[in-house]
Design a protein around this nucleic acid. Structure first.
Lengths: 211, 211
DNA sequence: AAGCTAATGTCAGCAGCTGACAAATGACAA
DNA sequence: TTGTCATTTGTCAGCTGCTGACATTAGCTT
């Protein structure tokens, strides 16, 4: 189907991802040199940087694949489903299909461990959040399209998206710092947090306030 | 009052901040080398790194001062004020007192321009967001304390904070990319976004949806 | 004035990343 | 099959952010 050249490139790319993630998990992101990753795949350092613009990029390769699925899930929601619900459903379905997204490259357990490595590495957390801005913008555009409102004049698309991604990030942070997380646990935690969004904004939390 | 040594250090520090920010605004963050900043203050590069651990840190020096004020404003809110309202008030009051926070070091207009530089520099955006995680955590702790709930078992403190900071970041992003922003405009934009939080989460946006 | 300590300078070196050019390796046609 | 062409890879040299080690300077103390 595709030429030998294409396939070879694809293989090199996946090999770099696997080698990098293995090393990152094993000895930490900052403790791993690009030279080491390149050496593990028997490729020059310069070649690594031709596949990935930065060392960070290879750390997010799996994440990128999964995110693609999420967007597809949002687009699949029939019109009429309100924004917050569409996002909720897409989030849940992405969690459920996470295996299908990456299993060709790496088992899911490896992804979960890489995720923890990300959460525990400040430099990677920074990059993660930066990337989520771009995603948020794209997502807001999709919501605006669905609802037939103008993204430039109506703040609501960006606001819902901001609130949701903010809450999701908080959830991810929470389970990302615990030991040995399963997909199920992560999904549950995420959904639980989302369910709290409405109640948390209400005036009265209805608990014994100490004043 | 304080020794000559102390004062000299303080002066060096402020000189570095001023020089750095001037250069960042003028020719961009990435286009400015640490050597240039150090040279502008007539100090060795090594000395720069003794004042600021990273080049990024000096870019956020002003931001840090203002954030301190924000936390003070939150703590000043009397008990009984619900979390979302306390945050709202503190945000507004921080905007109003922004001059008092930094005017000793740099005029407010310079801060606004530096802010735009940050927003337009992906690497700095990343750092900004990473820092906001730490702030969020501290803020959630403060909210939990005010409301007398347990931060570890009750997700609501982190969820409100996440929603609020998510929305604020979206607002900042919006005005941070426009040309020549005033404090007033920025504050208005921020508050407008926050006001949309509730409505945006409601099921029906009540607009002509095209389906 | 002498001695102590904190701040600064100098230098050497590592890691991430890039440009330039040469070498190797698939693709494709004669 | 071979020769040409385009793409990919390797090599090398160099810049920038950042750090450790050690020498030097400058403020503080008695």
């Amino acid at each position: 189907m595709t030429g030998l050249r294409e396939r070879k490139k694809q293989r090199t790319r996946e090999a770099l991802i696997r080698a990098a993630i293995e090393l990152f998990i094993e000895r930490g992101y900052e403790q791993t040199t690009v030279d080491e990753i390149a050496a593990a795949v028997d490729v020059s350092q310069r070649t690594f940087f031709r596949y990935f613009a930065t060392k960070e990029d290879v750390a997010f390769a799996l994440h990128d694949m999964i995110e693609q699925r999420f967007f597809a899930a949002v687009r699949e929601q029939p019109p009429g489903v309100p924004p917050s619900q569409a996002m909720r459903i897409a989030i849940e379905s992405t969690w459920n299909g996470i295996g299908a997204s990456i299993e060709d490259t790496v088992p899911v357990r490896v992804y979960m461990r890489m995720w923890q490595t990300i959460e525990q590495t400040p430099a990677l957390v920074a990059v993660l959040l930066r990337r989520s801005i771009d995603s948020s913008e794209r997502l807001a555009a999709e919501i605006a399209r669905r609802e037939g409102v103008d993204l430039e004049t109506d703040p609501r698309p960006r606001v819902v998206v901001a609130a949701y991604t903010g809450v999701m990030q908080a959830a991810a942070r929470h389970w990302g710092t615990n030991a040995e997380v399963t997909v199920d646990a992560a999904r549950e935690r995420t959904m639980a947090y989302l369910d709290q969004l409405g109640p948390s904004l209400s005036e009265d939390w209805g608990t014994g306030r100490k004043d």
